[in-house]
Design a protein around this nucleic acid. Structure first.
Lengths: 128, 128
DNA sequence: ACTTTTGTATTACATGTGTAATACTTTAGG
DNA sequence: CCTAAAGTATTACACATGTAATACAAAAGT
């Protein structure tokens, strides 16, 4: 309750659909989602409603349909999620985490460059 | 249910206490935890029991007391957690994530070195 | 204008999680 | 041997989450 941007795994899929393109109607969101998930459209509706309830999405009426848009930015959510993740693993050895990151190949070369740059700056500081 | 090593935020604290030192009795685990959390000892007991139930901890009787030990290794859990985290943020721009990592200062200089090394190897490959 | 469609809103229901309290059992002290 | 202390096991309860189904309302077709 303290963290307004607490988005669940399933809800993230909806957010991602809207970050990619918005506004969208519930229907087009469902279309997006069904490309990668096998959820019932009802389930997606539920997720959308919960996100509206927790203030992560907003909508404007467009005739009988609603046009949904993200309220929370992608950056905001990624940051929040990262901090929550860090909260868990903090204090453990991070080598396996780093390995997982590299294995999963989620970093683009640009991001690797950026990470390197940041690490260089950080490396100069009194670290640990 | 599919992922046996699904440890919740609160449960992680217990696991960390046992990864640090094991076996431990419920009492010493409580002591450890109370250094950083303000939970009731009962709460910690509950967490311990749940972890035993989900196969993350085991115990051996030592008189009336139990000696708890981790079944899941730290590396195993960190990897699982990382992959779950990645599952959420995959496909988004990771710059804010990287920033959060650096901000939170969770990387030791050794880990930074290791990450750099891995990135160098990775950097050579056809990345994205 | 009435019925069917198609959207949205409400309700459901099991399992997980945070956060404990109460009940039961075993051991140790008197 | 019996009672108190100290463990463990069971139960509680509200909110979150995954996964929908049902109810309701409005628009569109006939």
């Amino acid at each position: 309750m303290s963290d307004p941007s607490k988005i669940s795994e399933a809800e993230w899929q909806v957010m991602k659909a809207l970050w990619e393109k918005s506004p969208q109607t519930a229907n087009t969101i469902v279309q997006q989602i069904l490309k990668t998930r096998t959820w019932s459209p009802r389930t997606v509706r539920t997720l959308i409603n919960r996100l509206v309830a927790k203030g992560a999405l907003s909508y404007s009426k467009d005739g009988r349909e609603y046009q949904y848009s993200p309220v929370l930015s992608k950056d905001q959510c990624v940051q929040a999620e990262t901090k929550s993740f860090i909260g868990k693993i903090k204090g453990t050895t991070l080598t396996p985490m780093l390995a997982a990151f590299l294995e999963e190949e989620i970093l683009t070369s640009d991001e690797i460059d950026e990470l390197k740059r940041m690490l260089d700056q950080k490396g100069g500081a009194t670290n640990d």
